[in-house]
Simulated scan of single mutants.
Amino acid sequence: MHRDLSLVADIGGTNTRVALARGSDVQHDSVRRFSNKGASGLETLLERYLDELTPGDLAGACVAIAGPVRDGVGQMTNLDWRVDREGLGAVTGARKLAVLNDLQAQGHALNHLAEDDLLRLLPQPKAPAHAAKLVVGLGTGFNAAPVHESAGGRFVPPSECGHISLPRNTPAMAALADKLEASHHGFAAVEEALSGRGFVRVHRHLHGEDLDGVEIISRLSQGDEKATGSARLFTDILGTVMGDLALIHLPFGGLFLIGGMARAITPWLEPLGFAQSFRAKGRFSGFMDQFGIAVVQDDYAALTGCASHLGHMTPV
């Protein structure tokens, strides 16, 4: 019997990670990674996990999904899975149950990150503890979520920023948007360029080469001219979009970039002009210096955020 343990899970478009947590502390030796391919749904993976670890009775269960969540029901954006509290409770037997958007979970993790977990891209100016923050996810998809501190606790509203319009600030961006519109239902969304598969599309658009993201990054590390051109356009779009989001949400407490694609492209962001693209807001360019940006390097942050969120819930 382990009534002090909770189950937490982070469901991406490709893989699902499941772990046990005691309070807000994820038990790292309990983390398991499952491929989503071929699984009929989350319940199947959770049953496999519970059969393997046999943790006994659980105090709570919280999952973070890459997709919109409304009233405890989530629909994966890049996977045909529906996740809800009822199904989560049936598998785990827990009373405290929550389904979060993955960026919401990342937002709840921020207070639990050490400075060693962060790689600073732009310095963070001094800001009060209650200053808003913004978590930006760059992985299989793209999304962002603001993080607000209030008298009632931390509030992280859901968002679907990946499906807003791709910017057309430069001829190169406009040409890419035109290409994506022609092949994506007449609409060029941010996520179609800013994501792992988006990076592949940018490279194909510029050079006509069908390479996967790993190969493009490998060539980039070798100084390949075509890969560098693809990374430069990708970086320009990323800086532009994050600058737009900063002006919308005013996260004076900082912007936090998370996700596998974010970590993969990080070494090239500074030399390829990310800061310049982020600050390129005309007469508001100087205003942009008030926003620090860091890359979150803790791969378990979403699991920690789920555990932290459970700690502030009452049983339903």
Rank of each mutant, 00 (worst) to 15 (best):
L42E: 12
L42H: 12
L42K: 11
L53F: 03
D29H: 00
V26I: 13
P55F: 02
E52Y: 02
L42A: 14
E52S: 03
T54N: 05
S40N: 06
S35E: 06
A39L: 05
H28G: 12
G56F: 02
R32T: 01
P55D: 01
L42Y: 12
G38S: 06
H28K: 11
L53W: 02
S35R: 07
A39Q: 04
R48F: 08
V31D: 01
G38C: 05
G41V: 03
G38N: 06
P55Q: 00
A39R: 06
G38L: 06
K37A: 07
A59K: 15
K37F: 06
R32D: 00
L42F: 15
A59R: 15
D51A: 01
E52I: 00
D57L: 10
A39K: 08
R32P: 01
E43Y: 07
A39C: 07
Y49T: 09
E52K: 01
L45F: 12
K37Q: 06
G56D: 02
L45P: 09
T44G: 11
G56Q: 02
A59W: 14
E52W: 03
L58F: 13
A39Y: 06
A59S: 14
L46K: 15
R33H: 05
E52R: 02
T44P: 11
P55K: 00
Y49C: 09
E43D: 08
T44H: 11
R48T: 09
V31M: 00
G56I: 01
Q27D: 12
D51F: 02
A59Q: 15
N36Y: 14
S30C: 00
L50V: 09
L42W: 13
V26G: 09
G41H: 05
D29K: 00
Q27G: 10
N36Q: 14
H28C: 09
V31C: 00
K37D: 04
L46C: 14
T44M: 11
D29T: 02
D57I: 08
R33Q: 08
S40I: 07
S35C: 07
L50W: 09
L45G: 09
H28L: 10
E43G: 08
E43S: 08
E47H: 13
D51R: 01
E47P: 14
